[in-house]
Design a protein around this nucleic acid. Structure first.
Lengths: 310, 310
DNA sequence: CGCATAATACTCATTTCGAGTATATATGTG
DNA sequence: CACATATATACTCGAAATGAGTATTATGCG
C-alpha cells in the first residue's frame, strides 16, 4: 500500500436569517470565488472534529456558534487539493447563528445568490422554464443510450417536475452540475463553458456543501424547532413565519401557520407588543424551551399553501 | 501547529433482513469484540471515499453493495487509535443488501443483540424499566450541578420517557454511553465496570456507527422506498410489513399498512400466490420502480398502532 | 363439513390540513 | 371624525389522512 498523506479540512456553512433573507457567511477575496470558512483539523490539539471546528471558526470569524451539525465528508480527488499535494478530505458542517457583524475577510451573502432556482416565495423562478428545463431536455437527449436517458428523465422529473419538493436542494444542484449548467462543472473538467451558468459559483466543492446544508436545514425545520436558533429572543409570529419562509423558499398560509405553532406549544406570548409602522400591533413571543422536554419531535410543520390568495 | 499524522478509516454497516430479523454483517474473531467491516482509505489508489469503501468491502466480504449512504465521520480522541499512535478519523457508511452467504471471518448478526432496548415489537423491553431508567435516574442525580442535572433529566426523558421515538437510536446509545451503561465507556476510559453492561459491545466506536445507521434507516423508511432494497424480487404484503417492523422495532396495523402501501402505488400484484403453511394464500407483489418518477417523496409511511389488538 | 388461520375488503370516528371568512386594532388622510 | 388601508388574530368549513375496528373470503386439516 502506498503511503500518501491525508489531511482533514473542516468547512462550515454558517447560516443566519435577517428579515426575509437567509444568508451564509463566506470568505470573499477579490477576484477569487466565494468560499465557505475553511480550516485544517489539528489532531494533536483537538479532541473531536467539532471542537476543532468551533475553535477556528471562533478565531477566523469571531462568531460563537449555536447549533451545529455535521453534514457530509467529501474526499473526491481533484475537487480539493492542498498546495503540498496531500489529499484533503473535507468534513462539512452546518451551523446556525444570529447574524452579527462579520469579521474582516468575511461577509454575509444571501444564499439564493448561489441557488436562484430555489426561491419560490414570489413565484416559480422564471429561469426554470426559460433556461433549466430546456437545457435538461437536451441533457436527457444527449444520454449515451436509452436506459441512461430514462434514468436522466426520471431525475429531471423528480428534481424540477410536478410537485416541487423544497428539500431536494442537493439533488437539483448535482443534476445541474452533471448537465453542465453550473460553472463548477466546467472548472473541474478544465473546459470552457459556452452555455448558461446558473447562480454564483463557489470555491472547490463549497457550493455542494452549501446545498447539503440547505437541504438538511429545510428538512430539519419540519420536525425540530431549529428556526429559533436564528431568531431574536422575542419575535412576532409574522417574523417567525418570514424566517421559515426564507429558509424553505416557500410562502406559507398565515392563519394556519399560527395555528400550527400555537397548537404545538412552541411559543408563548410575552404580553408585550411591537410598534408597527402600520396596522395592528403584534404580540411578541418567545420560544418555549420546555417543548424539548415535553414533545418527542417538535418542529415547525410547514402548512404549505397552494393557492394564490393570502 | 504540531504535526501529528491522521489516517482515514472506512466502516460499513451492511444491513439485511431475514424474515423478522434485521441483521448486520460483522467481523467476529474469537475473544475479540465484534467489528464492522473496516478498512483504511488509501488516497493514492482511490478517487472517492465511496469507491474506496466498495473496493475493500468487496475484497473482505465478497459482497456487492446495493444502496449505500454515508452516515457520519467520527474523529474523537481515545475512541479509536491505531497501533502507531496516529489519529484515525473514521467515516461510517450504511449499505443495504439482500442477505446471502457470508464470507470467511464474517457473519450476520441480529442488530438487536447490540441494541436490545430498541426492539419494541413484542412489548416494551423489560430492561428499560428494570435497569435503564433506575441507572439513568442515578446518572441525573450524580450530575455536577443543578443545571447539568436538568439537562440530563431532559435527555433521559426525550430518549426513554413518554412517547417512544424509534428514530432516536443514536441519542439513546450516546446517553447510555455517558451514563456508563455500555461496556465501551469503561473500555475507553480504562476502568472496570462494576454496574450493568447493556447489549453486546463492539470494537472501537463501531456500535456508535451502527446506532447511526439504524437511526438513519428508520428515518429514511418513512419517506423513501428503501425497504425494497432488502426484499426479494417478489414478496407478500405481510413479508413487507414484517421487514418494516423489524427495522423500525415496532408493530404496525396490518390493514392500514396495506392501505398505505397500496394507495401510494409502491407495489403491484403479480397475480401469483404463495403456498402458505396455513391460511389463505397471499398474493405476491413486486416493487413498482416507476413510483420513483411519479411521486416526489414516496416512502413507507408507518401507520403505527397504539392498541394491542391485531 | 366445520374449524383455525391468514388475506383482503370495507366502515367509522377523529384528527389534520388547506383554504377561506370574519373581526379587532392600529395608522393616515381628507 | 369617518373612512380607507394594513396588519393581527379568531373562527369555520370541507376534504383528506389516520387509527382502529368489523366483515368477508380463501385455504388446509381433521
Amino acid at each position: 500500500m502506498s503511503k500518501e498523506s491525508v489531511s482533514i479540512g473542516l468547512s462550515a456553512a454558517i447560516v443566519a436569517v435577517e428579515g426575509e433573507r437567509p444568508s451564509v457567511l463566506v470568505v470573499a477575496h477579490d477576484g477569487a470565488a466565494d468560499a465557505l470558512p475553511f480550516g485544517p483539523f489539528d489532531p494533536a490539539q483537538q479532541r473531536t472534529l467539532e471542537s476543532g471546528l468551533r475553535k477556528w471558526v471562533g478565531e477566523q470569524t469571531r462568531f460563537g456558534l449555536g447549533y451545529t451539525e455535521q453534514l457530509y465528508t467529501f474526499g473526491d480527488k481533484g475537487r480539493h487539493e492542498s498546495a503540498a499535494g496531500t489529499r484533503v478530505v473535507s468534513v462539512g458542517y452546518l451551523a446556525l447563528t444570529r447574524q452579527g457583524k462579520e469579521a474582516p475577510e468575511t461577509e454575509w451573502r444571501g444564499w439564493y445568490h448561489y441557488f436562484p432556482w430555489e426561491d419560490w416565495r414570489d413565484s416559480k423562478p422564471a429561469m426554470i422554464d426559460s433556461t433549466i428545463l430546456p437545457a435538461l431536455k437536451k441533457f436527457v437527449k444527449d444520454a449515451p443510450n436509452a436506459e441512461a436517458a430514462e434514468l436522466r428523465r426520471e431525475r429531471v422529473n423528480v428534481c424540477f417536475g410536478e410537485g416541487w419538493d423544497e428539500e431536494r436542494v442537493l439533488e437539483r444542484y448535482e443534476l445541474l452540475y452533471e448537465a453542465g449548467l453550473v460553472e463548477e462543472f466546467w472548472r473541474d473538467s478544465g473546459r470552457t463553458n459556452k452555455g448558461p451558468s446558473l447562480g454564483t459559483p463557489m470555491l472547490y466543492d463549497h457550493r455542494r456543501i452549501l446545498a447539503t446544508a440547505i437541504a438538511r436545514l429545510r428538512g430539519k425545520l419540519k420536525y425540530r424547532p431549529v428556526v429559533f436558533e436564528l431568531m431574536a429572543p422575542t419575535f412576532t409570529l409574522l417574523e417567525l413565519q418570514r424566517a421559515v419562509e426564507a429558509l424553505a423558499g416557500l410562502r406559507l398560509h398565515k392563519q394556519n401557520f399560527r395555528r400550527l405553532v400555537a397548537e404545538q406549544g412552541l411559543v408563548e406570548g410575552t404580553g408585550k407588543f411591537n410598534a408597527p409602522v402600520r396596522g395592528r400591533p403584534a404580540e411578541l413571543f418567545r420560544f418555549r424551551r420546555v417543548v424539548l422536554r415535553e414533545r418527542p419531535a417538535p418542529g415547525v410543520r410547514l402548512g404549505v399553501r397552494r393557492s394564490k390568495a393570502s
